[in-house]
Design a protein around this nucleic acid. Sequence first.
DNA 1: CATGAATGAGCCTTCATTCAT
DNA 2: AATGAATGAAGGCTCATTCAT
Lengths: 194, 194, 194, 194
Amino acid sequence: MCPRTKEQFDLIRENKKEQILNAAIECFGTRGYYSVTISQLAKHAGISKGLLYNYFSSKEDLLKQIFQSLMRDFMGFLDPDENGILEKHELFEYFDKVFDFLQNNISLGKMYISIFSQPSVQTILNEEIVVASRQPLGMMLRYFESQGFEDPEVEVAFLGTLFSGAMSEFLSDPEHFPLEKIKIKIQNMYNMYK
Amino acid sequence: MCPRTKEQFDLIRENKKEQILNAAIECFGTRGYYSVTISQLAKHAGISKGLLYNYFSSKEDLLKQIFQSLMRDFMGFLDPDENGILEKHELFEYFDKVFDFLQNNISLGKMYISIFSQPSVQTILNEEIVVASRQPLGMMLRYFESQGFEDPEVEVAFLGTLFSGAMSEFLSDPEHFPLEKIKIKIQNMYNMYK
Amino acid sequence: MCPRTKEQFDLIRENKKEQILNAAIECFGTRGYYSVTISQLAKHAGISKGLLYNYFSSKEDLLKQIFQSLMRDFMGFLDPDENGILEKHELFEYFDKVFDFLQNNISLGKMYISIFSQPSVQTILNEEIVVASRQPLGMMLRYFESQGFEDPEVEVAFLGTLFSGAMSEFLSDPEHFPLEKIKIKIQNMYNMYK
Amino acid sequence: MCPRTKEQFDLIRENKKEQILNAAIECFGTRGYYSVTISQLAKHAGISKGLLYNYFSSKEDLLKQIFQSLMRDFMGFLDPDENGILEKHELFEYFDKVFDFLQNNISLGKMYISIFSQPSVQTILNEEIVVASRQPLGMMLRYFESQGFEDPEVEVAFLGTLFSGAMSEFLSDPEHFPLEKIKIKIQNMYNMYK
DNA sequence: CATGAATGAGCCTTCATTCAT
DNA sequence: AATGAATGAAGGCTCATTCAT
């Protein structure tokens, strides 16, 4: 029989990679990066240990790739028209989008939280984090400046506080946290009425 | 050389245990529970590995004891007269005390954050966390009820959001986070003027 | 597309096998048998891993086939008329041929050296080595006997010493080893003037 | 009970390290660096796998330390008075010492041979080899210069040829190689009569 | 009380080999 | 004939824990 075509192989690779990433997000999210072994990961993804290394060069690499994809998602929520400028309605919708996303991707969110709070994981991702956060922070700062806020830097810090607080509280108990009501409270604080 | 009186023993035990706990807090806080080895810990504390097991039965036990001591500190901030009832000035002062404490115990704070966000560490501490948080949450709820808030449960959740957000943002970059200004913003929200 | 005539098949097989052997000699010679992976080998040969196993049943088999081909070459140098008897001019020319060959096949030579000195590779090739060396050693012995040497066995050992020494020194630094001058020194020792 | 003194621990370490080195030399010498596993090594040395890493930071480190000790031995044979100058009697005795040593340390010798001929092991030891060989080669060169040899560099190369040839032939079959007679032949070539 | 040598289970990773297409 | 995805045994190494002294 003739071998598979390049297109067939590409399709297999793409699907399998997705499959592994999903398994990894779930495992890392529920049990934490350090507590998950490659063996468990492979079993969860329904593949052999060795195959994982056909797609990711190491456990660290796997973490980095998940993180980067997550960062891309978040950036897309913040600045959908990719013009680097944050408009009022974008900030407003950002809340909705991020928390909608989190509700549908609880494991991913938990993983994100555990990434940002585990010092040693931060070490692994350090460069990625710095690069990834530079742009959104700058956009928020310019937004508050343009809106005539008295102390824009504090506003950015406070917004960050609300965000990271809401995320971590929601994700630590998704069933009971009154997400909708909190969102409304926050949006009211910024006069973001629909 | 070796034999000592009972009093000497007790004094040594007390000091040594403190010494180990401090070293552990610093190491866990800066590098994370999983990345710190017992060897490193012992070296940092200036003792031998074997001796550490004289004071703590395992690495997990060490973590639990740190956590319990931390919880006791926090409870002391929230309800200093230990009457189980949260009064307005106590909530007001709670903010100050907690963040004063954090500013002087950054490693401990980082460790706290990493504890609450690492799923596997949560597993280790699960019972302790549930027990420890039941009382303060109840106190806050009764406080907001007594103050006639429309939806006390949401208020508790929102306060928790502000808290955990401020903690995590402050601890992720203690040098630059405008802690004082954020504290004032929060206290204003609750009309906690001095 | 796929089907071909039997003649085409045979031609392809012959070329492919040559191609793989050459790649293997180069890789084994420069990096050593154990450090070269089948993947690298296949890439170097411009084929897939799977195809390699169509021509060689295992990594060991590949090594054995290279070795056998090398042994055939060397035997051809020692006894070109294949009469099993070593004549003076044949021994004389043997030196020239072997070292000419080595100069043009440095990787092969390095591989030969590494084969003979790696105990575990010797294990793999053990039978082949014994069989292959029996004949030339016997021929040399009879040669020195026929030339009336006092202690022919020592002469064989000494000749072997010179040979293996010159090979290993040349191959460990082909650029700087004064091969021609050493050859002349050796040939003078045996009165092998042209 | 009181703990051991520093001297007691040092003694334990020294003995144990020796024990591991000897086991490693024997294993590497008989089966080759790549074919020996840490498990086998540990079993052969009568210790656990983990303990090996208490004394050597890696398998490579173990190889390097063996090699360095071997190089020190060889240098001691070549220039016992450590004046950096090779005298006639020293070169003469060098032969005897080296081959006496090899007869009593066949595994070590085999390991040496396999080191110098395995390309990938060479890579590991590359710097060490360059450094280690610079001095003796320089000494030999100056010796032949001082003795008025016509082409001292070729003499060094030829002596190296004899050496590495004799070593590899002897070590590949220590039982049958006529070492004494070969030594005499070589010493006669250089007029090194006792 | 105090030390660090010693253990061994278990981790991440590699790689020869197989197999469906 | 040809491909590379897939497997799994095995290797090097780490580290919490124990124990003789």
